[in-house]
Design a protein around this nucleic acid. Sequence first.
DNA 1: CCCTCCCGCCAATCT
DNA 2: AGATTGGCGGGAGGG
Length: 337
Amino acid sequence: MASSAAAAPPLEPSTTKRNSSYSRKQKSLSLLCSNFLSLYNRDDGATSLIGLDDAASRLGVVRRRIYDIVNVLEGVGLLARKSKNTYTWKGFGAIPNALKELKEEGLDLTPIPTCSNNPLDDTKREKSLALLAQNFVKLFVCSGFAAESKSISLDEAAKLLLGVGDSQNVSVMRTKVRRIYDIANVLSSVNLIEKIHTADTGKPAYRWLGLNVKTDDLHPNSAPNSDRSKRRSFGTDLTNVSCKRSKVAEKPMQDQGEVDESNSDGPAKESYKSYQFGPFAPVAVPRARRINMNKVRWESLGASFRPQYQNQALKELFSHYREAWKSWNSKLLDASR
DNA sequence: CCCTCCCGCCAATCT
DNA sequence: AGATTGGCGGGAGGG
């Protein structure tokens, strides 16, 4: 082994108990993920290797935490497992394809055990964070249900990702929700989703951002006017935006709901709907209307739009990251907006 | 009090 | 057998 654990690493304590005066936020998964990203994100195509132990020590955490991050990032295509202890950084350029695949794959709630003859080998995969993460993403990418600018609350997501039966089981639900928190946190770090709070219920929910990242000084003509106030920062600081309520718990919804966004929620001085404009080319491809969602209520998949991304866009994305990172960093210092 | 979700035990798998 | 992976949920921190 010789994991050179001798001299204390330059970072924080790694084997501390839950004591230590480090605040919870400073140890959050999202933050860790952001750090992870800034550590390995290379904008040039160069694919770097990521060693689990290396990452863990450089980030000052135990291996276990790295798995949490890596598993969901892999589901989105940012990473790929190369071999034992090693992952390959694929980069943001790999996301579009990964999403596309997920979309075509369609949300397929794992075949229930009942009549399965496959080894319990599958049940393992069935519960994996990776799969759950992908399914969570599909919730947005596939059905016309939560697609685009709609949002899903924690409970909705959990219920949807669980069998109808299980969603009744309090314990099972609780566990599922816990996992979704984990997933959502890393996905927000990557800016694929955003946490919001519904105006009335105040219940937290997640909204899909995809790669439509809008950087401030980007394409001034894509945003009506005031284009500040939307600087999403990394980690903990979550933008608080009022959004339409989505109170009703699970609901079948069987009409192809064509996500209309009549966001008449009022106050929000800036509705996030100036979507695919900037550097993104909409490219309406009316096809891809088949998704094999078996069972459950997944027959609706309204708007089937498929933005096409281009290098330019990715370029922007990266600069966005540096910006966000920078702002977050300074924010941490003076600990005050 | 309830929402978040960190933390690390330890089981399943892989070498 | 030892090393890797990673499910899982107790229970603490924070609003």
